[in-house]
Design a protein around this nucleic acid. Structure first.
Lengths: 222, 222
DNA sequence: CATTAACATACCGATGGTAGGTTTGTCAAG
DNA sequence: CTTGACAAACCTACCATCGGTATGTTAATG
C-alpha cells in the first residue's frame, strides 16, 4: 500500500476495523491477521508501526470510545451559571438522548466476550471520570445545598458506577421494562442524597428510546 | 507422575496453582506451560484430562472463589426466624468479618490484569447472586416493611454491585479511610430505601479490619 | 483379563511479535 | 531548482511460543 501522507487516517482506519472485529468476535478471538484481512491491503508491519502491541490497539479503541463522553462531561462541568443539580440533570438528559454512540448499535456489541474492554471502562469510570468530572459537580451541589453527603468522592463513584456500568445496555442488556426499573431505583438512590433530578419528561424520553434500542437490537440479532 | 487414586486432589492442586499464577501474572500472561512448571511434575496431558481448555480452568477458579460466599448467602437467606432486615444485616456482618478469602491476602491479587475474572465476577453478581440470594431477602423486607421500593430485583442488583464490586478491595484497592467512606455512602444509600442496618459495632469492626488489611498488603508488596 | 481413569509424550497450526528491507515525503544545503 | 540526507510509512519473511490434540503408557478396579 502506498504511503499515506496523513497517518492519522491510517490509525483511525485500523481502530475502526479493530473495534468492529472486537465487538463481533471478542478481543481474544480477534487475531491481528483477522484485522489485517479486514483492512484494505495494509500489512502487519503497518499495524506494528502505529501500535506497539495488540493490547495497545485495545487501549486506543477504549480511549476513543470514552473520549466523546468525557468531552461532554467536561463541557457541562465547566458550564458557568448552572447549579450542581442542574449540571447533573443535564448530564443524565444528554446520556439518555445519546445512550451509547450510534455506530455501536450497528454491530451488536458483546461486552461479555470483551472483558478487557469492560474492565478498562470500569476503571476509567471509577478512577478517572468520577473524580475528574462528577466530583467537582457534586462538590458544587454540596455548596448550593442540593446534594447531601459528607463523602462527595465516594458518592461520585457510586453514581457513575451505577450509570455507566449497571445501567449500560452494552454490559447488562435489559428489556425495555428493566431499563425503566433501573432508572427508577437510580432515582430513588439519588433522592437519598437529596438529589431530585428525574422528571416526567426524562422518563418519557427514556421509554421512547429503550423501545428503539430494543427493536434495533432484535433486528441485528443473528 | 504416578496415578492419583483421588483425582479431586489433583484437580484442586491444579486450581490452586492456576489461581496463584493468574493472580501473580494475570490470566492472559499465564501459559499452560507456566502452570505445569509450578505443578510438581504433572504434565500437560494431566491438565487437559481434567479441564477441557484454559478458559475452563479460569471458570473453575472463579466458581471456587464464589462458592463459599454463595453458601453463606444461601444459609442466611433460608434461615427461619430472621426478618429481611436482620438477614441483610447478618450478611454484611459476615462480609466484614471475612471480606475476602484468607488465602487471597497472601498473593497480592491483581484484578487489573485479570479482566476475565473481573467480568465473570460482575456477571455472577448481577445475574446469579442478586436474583438468587438478595432478591428473596429484599422481597421479605418489603413484606415486613423494612425495605421501601417498588423494584426489588433492581435494588438487589444495585446493592450487590456496590458491595461486591465497588467495595471489593481486590478490585478497587482503597486506603483504610476510603473503605470507611465507601461504607458510609453505602449506608446512606440503603437508608434511602428504608434500610437501617449499619451500626456502631459494624463500623468499629470495619475500621479494625481495614487496618489489618492495609498492613498485610504493605508487607506483601514487592 | 478386560476396561477405564489417570496420567505422559510428541507434535501441530495459529498467533503475537520482530528484524530488516523498501518506498516515499520533507526539508535544508548548495 | 536540484540534490541528498533523513525519517516516517509501510512490506516481507521469519521466529518463539502458545493452546490444543493424538496417541501412547501405566495402574487400579471388578
Amino acid at each position: 500500500m502506498a504511503r499515506n501522507k496523513h497517518p492519522e487516517e491510517t490509525i483511525n482506519l485500523i481502530l475502526d476495523v479493530a473495534f468492529r472485529r472486537f465487538m463481533e468476535k471478542g478481543y481474544e478471538h480477534t487475531s491481528i491477521q483477522d484485522i489485517i484481512d479486514h483492512l484494505g491491503g495494509l500489512s502487519k508491519g503497518a499495524i506494528y508501526h502505529h501500535f506497539k502491541s495488540k493490547e495497545d490497539i485495545l487501549m486506543a479503541v477504549s480511549d476513543r470510545m470514552t473520549a466523546k463522553s468525557n468531552q461532554m462531561l467536561a463541557a457541562i462541568r465547566d458550564c458557568p451559571g448552572l447549579s450542581g443539580k442542574e449540571k447533573l440533570k443535564t448530564i443524565f438528559k444528554e446520556s439518555i438522548n445519546r445512550p451509547v454512540q450510534n455506530d455501536i448499535f450497528t454491530v451488536a456489541p458483546n461486552f461479555h466476550s470483551n472483558s478487557k474492554l469492560l474492565s478498562s471502562l470500569l476503571h476509567e469510570t471509577i478512577e478517572e471520570a468520577a473524580p475528574d468530572y462528577i466530583l467537582p459537580i457534586i462538590e458544587q451541589g454540596i455548596e448550593d445545598c442540593s446534594v447531601k453527603t459528607d463523602y462527595p468522592k465516594q458518592l461520585a463513584e457510586l453514581i457513575l458506577l451505577a450509570a455507566n456500568v449497571w445501567m449500560n445496555p452494552m454490559i447488562f442488556d435489559s428489556s425495555e421494562k428493566e431499563t425503566y426499573c433501573k432508572f427508577m431505583v437510580f432515582d430513588q438512590m439519588l433522592r437519598g442524597f437529596g438529589l431530585d433530578i428525574v422528571d416526567k419528561e426524562m422518563l418519557e424520553r427514556l421509554q421512547e428510546l429503550t423501545s428503539i434500542y430494543t427493536k434495533s437490537r432484535q433486528s441485528s440479532a443473528r
